[in-house]
């Protein structure tokens, strides 16, 4: 008997707006998009239901049934709007596509951005912590760090 393999997705809920403008500095813009979530609406239990519904909408009964037993939102932090969700390995692609297709939660437009995929929850946790540290450093510098990084990238190309 082969053991049940699963994948853990580190995802982030971002809130797109049409009110971004170049007159604000990078930090303000960043905080506008990466808002904290309303914990009464966006929490682990509701997200599980939302993901299941979306899976059913995109892939029908077959899709919804195939992830029903494995899908589980392991962790969600409303403060940083990031979370970890577990799904059976076979259905990773289908499930990820469903996440991408989510356009709103409770009529608030959202974009779900998958940041990291791994086979153990521990690696996901490490990735989440590292990412948060990066973001904090970025904000402390007032949104300057990313600019330097981008120059480097364009040189490499």
């Amino acid at each position: 008997m082969v053991r049940l393999k699963s994948r853990y997705l580190l995802f982030q809920i971002v809130y797109p707006t049409d009110t971004l403008s170049t007159s604000e500095d990078a930090k303000t813009r960043f905080l506008k998009i990466h808002r904290t979530s309303d914990a009464s609406v966006v929490n682990a239990r509701n997200l599980t239901q939302i993901f299941k519904d979306e899976m059913e909408e995109l892939h029908g009964d077959l899709g919804a049934g195939s992830i029903m037993t494995t899908l589980n939102v392991k962790y969600f932090s409303p403060v940083t709007s990031t979370g970890i969700v577990r799904v059976g390995r076979q259905f990773l692609r289908e499930f990820w596509a469903a996440l991408t297709n989510i356009t709103d939660i409770d009529n608030t437009p959202v974009v779900i951005n998958v940041v990291h995929v791994s086979a153990t929850i521990k690696k996901c946790e490490i990735a989440a912590i590292e990412r948060n540290q990066q973001i904090v450093r970025y904000l402390q510098r007032g949104g300057l760090a990313v600019k330097e990084e981008k120059v480097d990238m364009s040189d490499e190309e």
């Binding site: 797109p16 356009t103 974009v111 998958v114």
Partner: peptide, 9 residues
């Protein structure tokens, strides 16, 4: 901007 997605998505 509501229907834009990340490159990996």
């Amino acid at each position: 901007s509501l229907s834009l997605r990340g490159p990996f998505d």
